[in-house]
C-alpha cells in the first residue's frame, strides 16, 4: 500500500504544513496529497511550486488528488 498525505477536512495552514513536511522528508520522487477544499488545493500547489516541485491535480468527486513530483 502506497503512502499519502491525507489533508481531507483540514483547514489551512495544516495541509500546507503537512505537505511541506512530506516534501522535505521525501527529498525527491513523488508525493501524493489529498485535500478536500479549493483553498487547500491552491495553497499546497503554491507551496510545492515555490519549493521547486511540479504538481498535477486530479479531481475525484469532492476531493482533489495532487501528485507532486521532483
Amino acid at each position: 500500500m502506497s503512502e499519502l498525505v491525507d489533508c481531507r477536512g483540514l483547514s489551512c495552514p495544516e495541509p500546507v504544513m503537512l505537505a511541506r513536511q512530506a516534501l522535505q522528508e521525501t527529498g525527491n520522487g513523488t508525493v501524493q496529497v489529498v485535500v478536500s477544499n479549493a483553498v487547500a488545493l491552491d495553497n499546497v500547489t503554491r507551496a510545492a511550486n515555490q519549493m521547486g516541485w511540479q504538481v498535477s491535480v486530479e479531481e475525484e468527486g469532492e476531493e482533489f488528488k495532487l501528485s507532486i513530483k521532483k
Binding site: S2, E3, L4, D6, L18, Q21, A22, E63
Partner: peptide, 10 residues
C-alpha cells in the same frame, strides 16, 4: 503524534 504521511486508505 502528527505524521505527514500515512498509509493510503483513500
Amino acid at each position: 503524534h502528527r505524521k505527514a504521511k500515512t498509509k493510503d486508505y483513500s
